[in-house]
Design a protein around this nucleic acid. Sequence first.
RNA 1: GGAGGGGUACUCAAGCGGCCAACGAGGUCAGACUGUAAAUCUGAUGGCUUAUGCCUUCGAAGGUUCAAAUCCUUCCCCCUCCA
Length: 390
Amino acid sequence: MDPKKQVAFLSRGAAELLTPSELEAKLHKGKPLRVKAGFDPTIADLHLGHTVVMQKLKQFEELGHQVIFLIGDATARVGDPSGQSKTRPTLSAKEIEQNAKTYLDQAFKILDKKKTEVRRNSEWFKKMNAMEIVDLAGHYNVARMLEREDFKKRYTEGGQVTIQEFIYPLMQGYDSVVLKADVELGGSDQKFNLAVARDIQRAHAQDPEVILTMPLLVGTDGVKKMSKSYGNYIGITEPPKEIFGKLMALSDEMMWHYYELLTDEDLSAAKKMHPKEAKIALAKAIVTRYHSAKEAEAAAEEFEKVFGQKGKPGEIEEKVLSRKAPLGSLVQVIVQTGLVPSKSEARRLIEQGGVTVDDQKIQDIHAQITTTSDHLIKVGKRRFLRVRFE
RNA sequence: GGAGGGGUACUCAAGCGGCCAACGAGGUCAGACUGUAAAUCUGAUGGCUUAUGCCUUCGAAGGUUCAAAUCCUUCCCCCUCCA
């Protein structure tokens, strides 16, 4: 592909490309670019938000560039201050190692294992001695460090900023020096770190890398960035049904955001579809990626059955209760079976018409389960349970 | 080290002796409407054998009072200013 087209293709969905002309110039040299993206294995569960950058890496890979998947096992111990309002706690080496493994497993669901260069920055940081660190620190100054929004804010508001956090961007920049990166990708919250990397490279007489940042994926609430702590995430290890359901619950507007950042689909074609169809296609694509096409198909069918036709799911969890135990009130039964955490909650749901027994809506909180035959209990829209007595 | 401000339910945030299981907003859950959407509307939102009832909750522990989230004492934590 000619450089101009590549630039256009690669900027799709990107938050910022610094700069297009630099990228084009690098492409004109005709050699595969070294494209770096670092991931600090700080958490155990990855969610879709983490895959946005990987998705972009894949595009570089498809164009024949050398993708470097950098595991920040050294930087993970420092903790990236990006977007943090507090100094974050450090992790143990063991946790980091475990997380790194998960990251790789997930990364290769998107990237080609054979074509990707996997590195760890402990390779060089382990060997670095104090003098070298001091030397590295000499390449940057405090005033510029404090330009950074999250530092400035914390600093002026009397919060804590540790020197360790100052080191972080320097380390990330040094990674680029070692890896001789031509391009670096990151989330848009990484912009500062990436900019520092350019300076560090210059200080080491290297051509500064081109920076390509990706927008942060907005969570399922449609407001905040996807993050585990906000509870608005879709984990990529979640069961197919869950992933499918959560994607379907997105608003139409959000769906396009997901399309753009998580797939390579032709947006204009997708927009011509009926929104529901488009959403199903999106959900299938994502489930296929992290599970399989078969499971995606099954999840779609199930979904249509339960919600589209108000039917019952193919598989309903079953709970066996003792026949000897006195048959209690409905309230008791749904708490016992764990459908609902407390009796007050159960009564509330019943009063509000959210509980169905054998397709009959029950609104009397004193209702009793009188027969020991099987009963199908439905709570809310998606909680189904079959109760059997033995 | 000195002076002041503050810690309330999932979150933010009122309340500052009884009318407080605790205003309000957000979130969440349920119902209606739909494309399981979103938006909107309605309701609920500590627990308990639903009871104009009881129990637990307002940083922690004590105390005053018929009665405390509200007053007092000690302790812990956070913030602001000064040094």
